[in-house]
């Protein structure tokens, strides 16, 4: 046939289609995971419920808060609006992958030092959006930081400690390169 990828065969139940499970392969934090899912499973559900990677949080599941942000090929995306079957073979980074061999990423260090996390619930998404920004822009201005993080809501901090943590990280990364 002319299509590839996940194909569900369907039997009807209660007016909805019930699809069979598909075995998919995901590259998460440098590791390969094989997991059988129905095609309607979002990356958010797969991470949290199938792979126990519960560091990825959720606040609305419809793209209105940024809490479930993860990186795909180093770009922030929302795991609540991404199907597992759509991102096979792509590089996925979650909060669990920010720390390498027990060593914190400098952005995590800065969040800790500046108390940029209060309740901590938006923090994984904030950290990943911040990391993506810093990977692309070594010395972002405050406006650039605000822009890059403007898809992540926080109700605790008033945002400034997060901005300061990104600035601190940028200055540290810059200093370490010199």
């Amino acid at each position: 046939m002319f299509y590839t990828g996940a194909v569900g065969t369907a039997k009807t139940k209660g007016g909805l289609l019930e699809s069979q499970k598909t075995l998919i392969t995901l590259q998460i934090n440098g590791e390969r995971y094989e997991v059988a899912v129905t095609v309607n499973k979002t990356l958010l559900e797969i991470l949290r419920e199938d792979l126990d990677l519960t560091g990825t949080k959720h606040g609305c599941e419809v793209g209105e808060c940024g809490t479930c942000t993860v990186l795909i090929n180093d770009q922030p995306i929302l795991s609540c609006l991404t199907l597992g079957v759509e991102i096979q073979g792509q590089k996925i980074t979650t909060i669990e992958g920010l720390e390498q061999n027990g060593k914190l990423h400098p952005i995590q260090q800065a969040f800790i030092e500046l108390q940029a996390a209060q309740c901590g619930y938006c923090t994984p998404g904030m950290l990943l959006s911040s990391k993506a920004l810093l990977d692309e822009n070594k010395n972002p201005s405050q406006d650039e930081i605000k822009e890059a993080l403007s898809g992540n809501l926080c109700r605790c901090t008033g945002y400034w400690k997060i901005i300061e943590a990104v600035e601190l990280t940028a200055s540290r990364l810059g200093a370490s390169k010199e």
Binding site: E96, Q108, Y121
Partner: peptide, 23 residues
Amino acid sequence: KSLPRVDAGDKCTGRTKYADDLR
């Protein structure tokens, strides 16, 4: 002193288990 919060490490690494994270 402005010491880091005691739970910040877990919150910044995804280790904190909120109620919905429990299974």
